[in-house]
Computed example of a mutant assay.
Amino acid sequence: MKLGLDIGGTKTAAAIVHTDGRLAVLRTRASGHGPDAVVRVAASLALEAVAAAGTTTAGLSFIGACMPGLVDRESGLVSHAVNLGVERLDLAGRLGAALGQPVAVDNDVKTAALGAHHLLDQRNTDGTLAYLNIGTGLAAALVRNGEVLRGSDGSLGEIGHLPMGGDALCKCGQRGCLETLVSGSALERMWPPSGSGRPHGRNPFVAADAGDTSAAAAGAQLSAGLFLAVQMLVLTTGADRIVIGGGLTRLGGDLSTALAREIEQRARASDFVASLDLASRIELVPADLPVAALGAAMLQHGPLPTPQRPSGVPA
């Protein structure tokens, strides 16, 4: 069995995966903040998942891990993971020491793109799949001809930090980044919890239908920002498919419907937008499908086995 760790801006997931791609164990926990806490939570969760699988880290054939930020796969160093309070972290070295085995590392969105490609797009190996992650932040990754594209410095796909206008301050230090329009942090800013508090998984589209005007404004901004992200990916990469994942996909059909309406309205106003046929290219990953953790278990070099959709998750 193999272990995949997904250290996200909000949640860390540990997946024990059989060599044929079946999910054996999945454990999740709130992510730590700061280098020490990030490593401590990830290592503890990994050991918990390994124990639940009835084995030890020494009995695993491979361990992979991913997290946000710029990741040097060769050195194992992670930098600028701002949502986790990490400026620089030797993730491979510190996790490897904690688990007693070598750990391969990569950027979380690129890893999720790999997982999404193998789980959802196995037959389409000749095209380009763009994975758009709308979680605490916003980023994208590309898989072309079955390979993840990276760019010379690994920053390819960091579309969340493209300034698109507006005055909202982004955690990267710029203002008006795309991430300030469509992301979990953007939703928190545009529709903050009320005095009595709201559950983290609150739905602005449902609240808007109930008469919440601030929720309606936030939902409209999310839809517009998501449209811009999808259109940008299609125009700049020629992606055949846009697979959307991340924490905000918990909004499910409401998010899909809002995006479809946004695309329809824009297409009616522009023959050019209509010609892109964006609606036919989009697919949402089920929120409970741990594509990044599963992708992390596939980071090893060399041929990968043909994976199967994990049992217990929606088809």
Rank of each mutant, 00 (worst) to 15 (best):
K2F: 07
I7G: 05
T10S: 09
K11P: 12
D20K: 12
R22K: 15
L23T: 01
L26W: 11
R29K: 06
A30P: 03
S31L: 02
H33V: 07
P35Y: 02
V39G: 01
R40P: 03
A43I: 08
L45N: 14
E48T: 13
A53D: 15
G54Y: 02
G54A: 05
S61E: 03
I63N: 11
C66V: 10
C66K: 07
G69Y: 09
G69W: 12
D72N: 15
S75L: 14
S75H: 07
S79R: 15
H80N: 09
V86W: 08
V86H: 00
D90F: 10
R94V: 08
A97C: 13
A104I: 09
V109T: 14
A113H: 14
R123A: 10
D126S: 15
T128P: 10
L129D: 10
G135P: 04
G135S: 13
T136C: 05
T136H: 04
G137W: 00
L138Y: 03
A139S: 03
A139M: 00
A141P: 07
N145K: 07
E147C: 01
R150G: 02
D153F: 08
D153S: 04
S155G: 06
L156P: 05
G157F: 10
G157W: 15
I159R: 04
H161Q: 01
M164Y: 11
M164S: 15
R175T: 12
R175K: 02
G176F: 05
S183Q: 04
W191M: 03
P199N: 09
H200W: 02
G201S: 14
N203D: 03
V206G: 05
A208C: 10
A210L: 10
A210S: 11
G211P: 07
T213I: 13
A220I: 09
L222V: 10
G225K: 03
L228Q: 09
M232T: 14
L233P: 09
T237W: 12
G238D: 12
R241L: 09
I244H: 02
I263C: 13
E264K: 06
R266T: 13
A269T: 14
F272C: 10
F272G: 12
L276E: 10
I282R: 06
V285R: 05
A296K: 03
A296G: 12
A296E: 06
Q300P: 04
P303G: 09
P310L: 07
P310V: 01
G312M: 07
G312S: 10
